[in-house]
Design a protein around this nucleic acid. Structure first.
Lengths: 140, 140
DNA sequence: ATAACTGCAAACTTTTTGCTCGATG
DNA sequence: CATCGAGCAAAAAGTTTGCAGTTAT
């Protein structure tokens, strides 16, 4: 079953190797935001001859070609997600590390305004919210 | 001459060593946002017996006690600035690396709203804008 | 066939840490 | 003088790279 990433690999003129197919599958089906060593673990479950270096090289290559987007939250590790969906930012649950995607047109717009006021054209941004799940009652 | 950071070192019950005095001075007078190896270089100009490990340990200690704030832009290195001033975010000039501080009440407010809508209490955030200086005419 | 790709191990960068000695309060 | 801090070198953790062999096109 050829997923969207495989199609893009071909389209960008990359060779569709077994490793890349497998890595693409793992990335496409990852609904959390795993770092590279974790992706390697998942890939290795299927084929343990795939090296960590290959996963790193593949992620970098995929990002260069716009197939994946790279993020780096507070822990400093690189995380990737398919670039297909539309732009969004992230809210990280500080207790669990769970990453929630969100989108705020209002904030997007204001960012451009702020940049412009400072004499810049906005070419990118990084917005991460860190939050704690709201519960009815207070606990420890 | 005792700067604000030295006062805080005492106030927090840390020992005011020669190394810390010097590091505090360098940090206080740095108006860019240097990373740790760079701070070490500046400190070493004054006293080259101060080790890199000490600068790292001091930065971490200072951050834990709220004397400094740590940032990490796209390059992945830790950067520090005195925590004294009021909260602000950063715009990074992608061509020069220059860091500009700004503040947007509007964005601050919206972040809390977004978090709340997702069922979270906002406990922190990271907002960085990446921009290119606007010039009158277009170049290369 | 040949350029692209992979695996392996070694190298790199930034940051942390164990240990011993020295300095501060 | 008891403890906290500093220096040094080694270790971590994540990531990159040189090289030689393999594979997709």
């Amino acid at each position: 079953m050829t997923n969207r990433i495989e199609a893009q690999i071909r389209a960008k003129g990359l060779r569709l190797t077994g490793q890349r197919k497998l890595i693409a599958q793992v990335v496409a089906s990852a609904h959390d935001h795993p770092d590279v060593p974790e992706l390697h673990r998942r890939v290795a479950e299927e084929d343990d001859r795939i090296s960590l270096a290959t996963v790193y090289r593949t992620m970098k290559r995929f990002e260069e070609l716009g197939i994946l987007e790279r993020h780096e939250f507070r822990d400093g590790r690189a995380r990737y997600e398919p670039a297909a969906k539309r732009h969004h930012d992230h809210l990280i649950d500080v207790d669990t590390g769970t990453v929630i995607e969100f989108r705020s047109e209002e904030i997007e717009r204001l960012q451009a305004v702020v940049a412009r006021e400072l004499g810049f054209d906005l070419v990118g941004h990084r917005l991460e919210l860190y939050g704690r799940r709201r519960t009815a009652r207070k606990e420890s």
